[in-house]
Computed example of a mutant assay.
Amino acid sequence: AGIFAIGYHSDMSGYGKKAHLTAPVHHWDEFYAERVQQVLDDKWESQNVWKGIDAGMTRLAPLSKDIPANVVAEVEAIKTKIANGEFHPFSGPINNQQGELVTKAGQTIDDKTLLGMDFYVEGVEGQLK
């Protein structure tokens, strides 16, 4: 239909070769192996886990060949900044769908807000139900 999409959790490019641009893909294998070993060693402790691009737990599926080279370069640069801690994707200013300020400039949405995020950001069309 000529509509592009970004997936979530898995690389769906094999199913939508002309539509799939990329997807964040979560790699829990090493995390689970570490946790199982901790249990076996009687060293496991409950904890919050917020690993991402920097730890390799989140990666991007291959980028579509339909994405212009300058956009690919920008994506790669931002990915590097996220991994280096130079950029946080939930840094303000962030407005909700109604244009109300949710996070001020220079601040980052905290984990509690991310876990309970019950709003779309400005510019997203649709309604939460």
Rank of each mutant, 00 (worst) to 15 (best):
N48P: 06
A61P: 04
N70P: 07
D42H: 15
E74C: 02
A19P: 01
K129I: 07
S10C: 06
P68S: 10
K65N: 13
V102K: 07
H20N: 11
Q98D: 15
E76G: 03
W50M: 08
P89N: 08
K104Q: 03
Q127G: 14
K18P: 02
G116D: 09
E100Q: 05
A83Q: 03
E34K: 15
F87P: 07
K129N: 12
K104F: 04
L40V: 15
Y15L: 08
A83I: 01
V36L: 10
E122S: 12
Q98G: 06
V124I: 10
A77M: 03
E74N: 14
A19T: 09
D42S: 13
A33P: 01
K112Y: 08
A1D: 11
V124W: 12
V124T: 13
P62D: 00
A33I: 13
I94R: 10
G52W: 07
N96I: 03
V71W: 04
S91R: 04
L101W: 10
A5W: 07
L101Y: 10
A33Y: 10
S13F: 00
K104D: 14
V102F: 02
H27A: 02
G106M: 13
Y120T: 06
A1C: 08
T103W: 00
Q127H: 13
A105T: 11
M117K: 15
L114P: 06
T80S: 00
G7E: 04
T103F: 02
L128N: 09
Y15A: 11
Q37R: 15
E45P: 08
I94P: 02
G7D: 01
G56Q: 06
L114K: 12
P24E: 02
V39Y: 11
R59N: 04
D42V: 14
Y15C: 11
K112W: 05
H88T: 11
D66H: 04
G7Q: 03
E125N: 15
V25E: 05
T108P: 05
L128F: 14
Q127V: 12
G14A: 07
V102D: 04
P93Y: 06
Q37I: 15
P68W: 08
E74V: 07
V102Q: 00
D42Y: 10
D11E: 13
D110S: 13
N48E: 12
N48G: 12
S13R: 05
W44I: 14
K112D: 10
F4C: 05
G92E: 02
K81T: 08
D29Y: 01
I94A: 05
V36R: 14
L40G: 14
S46T: 14
G56E: 09
